[in-house]
Every structure is written in C-alpha cells, then in structure tokens.
Design a protein around this nucleic acid. Structure first.
Lengths: 195, 195
DNA sequence: GGCATGTAAGTGAGTGTTTACTTACTTCAG
DNA sequence: CTGAAGTAAGTAAACACTCACTTACATGCC
C-alpha cells in the first residue's frame, strides 16, 4: 500500500477510535487494530499518539461547509433563507461527521489547544456572520432591537443543542425530518425577532 | 478524620479530577493527590476507580433543583413565568455545578450507562414538563400549533447551548447578566410561539 | 492517674499488567 | 540489489490495585 493511502487510512480509523473513547481512553493497540496494521506501523506514520490526534483535528480545521455563510440571501435581506441555510448547514455538518464532532467535544473537555483553534476558526466565524447580519437587520428596523450576539447564539443553540444531544451524546431524541425541524426553529426565531 | 467525612472529601476531590480529565485521563495517583491522602486510602474507601466514579454520578441523580418545574406558574398559564423559571433554573444549575456538568458530558461521550440514567432522570423530565405545558397551551389556542417536543427542545437549546459553551467547554462567550439572557430567550421564544 | 488493649485511620513499598514507543528483523516490488 | 512497507518481540515507565505495617486514640481496668 502507498504511504499516503495508509496514512489517511490510519487517521480515519483513529478518528473513529478517539471519537468513541477520547484521547486518554484510546490505546495505541486499539488504533492499530482498528486500522488493521501493527502498532509499529502506526508509529512509522506518526511520531507519536498525540501527533496523530492533532493531525486529525488540524485536517478538519481547513474544511469548509456550504451554506454556513449564505452571503447572497443575506444581501437580499431574506431572513428566512439566511436562517434556514445556516441551520440546514449545521444539520448536514453534524450528521455527516458525527464522529469528528464527538472527538472535538472530547478535545475541548480534555482542554487540548487544538480544539480552541477549531472553534475559533469555525464556530466563531459562524456566530459572527449571523450576529453581523442580525445587527444590520435590526438597524434597518426589520427586526426587534435585541443584542445581536445573544440572539445569534440563541438561534444556533436551538439547532446545535438538538444535534448535540442526538449525534454527539447519543441520547434518545424523538426523530423528526430535518426539514421540519429547521422550519420550526426558523419560525420560532423569526416570529420572536420580527417587530 | 471520620470515615464518612473522608469518604465525601475523596469523592469531592475526585469529581474535580474527573471533570478536568475524564475517567480514563485521571489516574488513581491524581485522585489521591487531589484528596491529600495516599492511594491506598482511596481504595480503602472505594473498591475500585470505577465505583468511585459511579458513586459521584449516583449521588447527583438524586439531587433536585428548584424552579425546573414551575407548577404554579404553569397552572396559572403564565407562559413568561414558566419559561423564565426554567431558564433561570438551568443557569443556576450549570453555573453552580460546572464540574459535574463536565463530568457528565465526559461520561456520556465515554458511554457509561450511568450518564444515561442521569439524563433519563433529569433532562427527560424537564423536557417532558415543558412540552406537556406547551401542548396544553397550544390546545387552549394561546400558542401557535407547533410540535410541542420540538419547541420545548428549541427553548432549552437556547439556554443550554450557551451554558454548555461557556461552562462545560470553557469557550469564550461574551458575558451578559443572566437575567438579561433569560429575558432575551423568553422574548424570542414567546414572540415566536404566540399566535 | 497510669497503662494495657482493641480498633479504626492511614500509609510506603510493593504486585502484576498495560501502556506508549523502539529495535532489529523480514518481505517483496522495481 | 535496493529501498520502502511491514512486523514480532521487545523496553521502560505508568497503571490500578494490594499487603504488611504503623500510628492515633478511645475504652476499661487497676
């Protein structure tokens, strides 16, 4: 097998392990088993356990997801479209990458510096985009005067709390189609924000 | 020192350790150091590391918090009071017990059965109380027809997401007085739920 | 009071096992 | 033949947990 392929294969398997048991809870033996190779090979590809872990996070920081920054809907002032796009993007991201979200939560709890980097890079920009948009719409008189940051967090919270319970913590949440959920969140939020 | 005192003292110190590093990330040596005793004494009080961990969770399952089930405001149909009481109770709980909330999140991620028990006992009842209340108010025509469970989760999500970021994950969140936050959440939610 | 005695509180120095990581070796395609 | 891909068999340290032992002190007896 080519070096690069094996490298990513090990990293992929490792992500699943770390997501399930956390950094401290995962042994290098588990990592090797999950990737179907010997422990020695894992250490040929990564200098140590921590580097492997860090590389997984690092790789994800770069990824982008569509819909999280709906610039054109924002330019049009289409509140409904902006919010629905963001919420749908969050659902997509968490559902398609539940393992990484778990790993990330572990990482935050364990206090790794990389998790902070990730949140700075992604969560932060999402909240800033939305609160900037809301601030403008409030200035335009289209929405009630509320602290934009608080309101933005409140909206993201509706989606993220649900997604967190379901996909990260794996707790039983009544199943509803994503489209219906997004619609409900947007309806409630916009209803509460309109003048 | 009396047995019972030392027992709780070790458990208290252990909670701080487990909250900071998780179960797997905490060594019995750390537990002993944190409690200021020898490792041997820890094992005199608890049969093993897991039992110590479990006992901490078990102890908390029993605790109750005021305001999470505002029965009388609910009976009056005072939506604002019901929601504000619940949100304030959540803020109080998470702020006063951030360590345990971290431990609990770790526990869920690590897949311990006890964390499920906790959520069944507490989160579940909170969501049920609120969604039952909302269902009634919708039936009475006071609120828009929305799935009560989805709406209830959405409301709790606004508070819990914020609290989770700030106190559990320890991420930088702009500081606002709790009272102001609660008011904003209630305003947005009720505005969006009113007919 | 003085002093033996029983017991609960507490620990230093281990136990065997598991851990992260290494070394010395084999295999095999080009 | 060479070099890259791969591993079996280690190593030292750290791990959860135990054991044999030492206090500290209350109690009862003279």
């Amino acid at each position: 097998m080519k070096t690069a392929d094996r490298h990513t294969q090990i990293a992929d398997a490792a992500m699943r392990c770390f997501a399930r048991r956390g950094f401290a809870g995962t042994t290098t033996r588990m990592l090797a088993r999950a990737a179907g190779v010997s422990e020695a090979l894992v250490f040929r590809h990564f200098p140590d356990k921590r580097s492997l872990y860090d590389e997984i996070v690092e790789r994800k920081v770069g990824e982008e997801d569509d819909g999280l920054f709906p610039e054109e809907a924002a330019a049009r002032g289409d509140d409904r479209a902006v919010l629905a796009s963001i919420a749908a993007a969050l659902v997509r991201r968490v559902e398609s990458d539940a393992d990484f979200m778990k790993l990330l939560t572990f990482s935050c709890l364990e206090g790794t510096s990389l998790s902070r980097r990730y949140f700075q890079a992604r969560d932060r920009t999402a909240i800033e985009f939305l609160s900037t948009y809301l601030a403008r719409r409030i200035r335009e008189g289209a929405l009630r005067p509320v602290r934009p940051e608080t309101a933005a967090r409140a909206f993201l919270g509706m989606s993220l709390h649900h997604l967190h319970l379901k996909h990260v913590l794996g707790l039983p949440v009544r199943r509803r189609p994503a489209r219906e959920l997004v619609e409900t969140w947007v309806d409630i939020f916009l209803g509460g924000m309109k003048r």
